[in-house]
Design a protein around this nucleic acid. Structure first.
Ligand SMILES: [Mn+2]
Ligand SMILES: [Mn+2]
Ligand SMILES: [Zn+2]
Ligand SMILES: [Zn+2]
Lengths: 159, 159
DNA sequence: TGACTAAATGAAAATCAATTTCAATACCGA
DNA sequence: TCGGTATTGAAATTGATTTTCATTTAGTCA
């Protein structure tokens, strides 16, 4: 790792090493805050900006990519895995991956047709995961006699 | 429109009408600021929050959807059109649409396979549009004698 | 036609993630 | 070891978004 970074013109530091290691330990879909927490468990002295900057660096050198599901928090995904899309459960906010091989092919075709030079795809399916749906069903069944109407949902809640 | 909103329990106001009308006039991929500017051209007294809230309302009642390409600005897209994906040019930040019919079918299949209840798809191709690529080529050709190396890119720039 | 009440408005403030600033510190090549 | 550059950490800033709150208004009903 040290060597890899050196070739790209970056120095190695204890903080950097810790951030990199923690990121790869955490695995999929890591947010800055999650990574920060993890790093802090090991070294209380590391600053938030250091974690942030090094996470950016991990992207910069091509080891991770940003994942933005539109819930206000950017997550970071290792690029080791082959191209994949994400199920995003709007209920529990979990991300589940699915393979993108055939679909990626079609998308590439669409892109060339439009003379668009593709850098990356982003495919997302928004909805409700099985576990959340089951939970919801059970709740509904339990309370079928109560509260007849649900009032207008308050506008937004994000972030 | 007035009637449509009434059935959903909302009142009509001059501001609301103006915001709605302006939104549909502007068409595709409208940001709050763009809409705000447009509205202000007609009525200087309308507040930003009013525009924002009504844009949210347009989504709430199902007439628009948020589009988040991860550049920090949320855009809003009418739902009149059939499902489509977006080319996002990272250079000029323009959005170009492409049809999603076949791909949507495949995605739906993937979703059912995973017992995931789909609410919507989000398909994006990031890259460089033809016009930007041409521009870039011309520039490169012109300056082939200059600056031999490009230094490390500054980390991030978004928003 | 009023009068009432919940909804809507506008200005300002609050949020909140993301990013930058800057002075102090630490790498690492010579 | 030394010196110049990169990195760090705390704090401040940014910029979009969202909320608050006092005031106004739309729509309802007598
Ligand atoms: Mn992933
Ligand atoms: Mn669109
Ligand atoms: Zn879920
Ligand atoms: Zn372009």
């Amino acid at each position: 790792m040290r060597e890899f970074l050196k070739t790209k013109g970056y120095k190695m530091t204890p903080q950097r090493e810790l951030v990199f290691r923690s990121f790869f330990e955490l695995g999929e879909h890591v947010s800055v805050d999650e990574l920060f927490d993890r790093v802090r468990q090991i070294d209380k002295a590391v600053g938030y900006s250091t974690v942030w900057r090094n996470l950016k660096l991990i992207c910069e050198v091509g080891l991770a990519r940003e994942v933005n599901v539109g819930d206000g928090v950017t997550r970071y995904d290792r690029v080791t895995r082959k191209p994949h899309g994400h199920f995003y459960c709007v209920s529990c906010k979990s991300l589940l991956e699915f393979d993108l091989n055939e679909i990626a092919g079609r998308l590439a075709k669409v892109a060339t047709a439009e003379k668009f030079e593709t850098e990356s795809f982003k495919v997302e399916i928004e909805g409700v995961c099985k576990s959340c749906r089951d939970k919801e069903n059970r709740k509904t069944k339990r309370s079928l006699s109560e509260s007849p109407g649900v009032s207008k949902a308050k506008l937004s809640k994000k972030r």
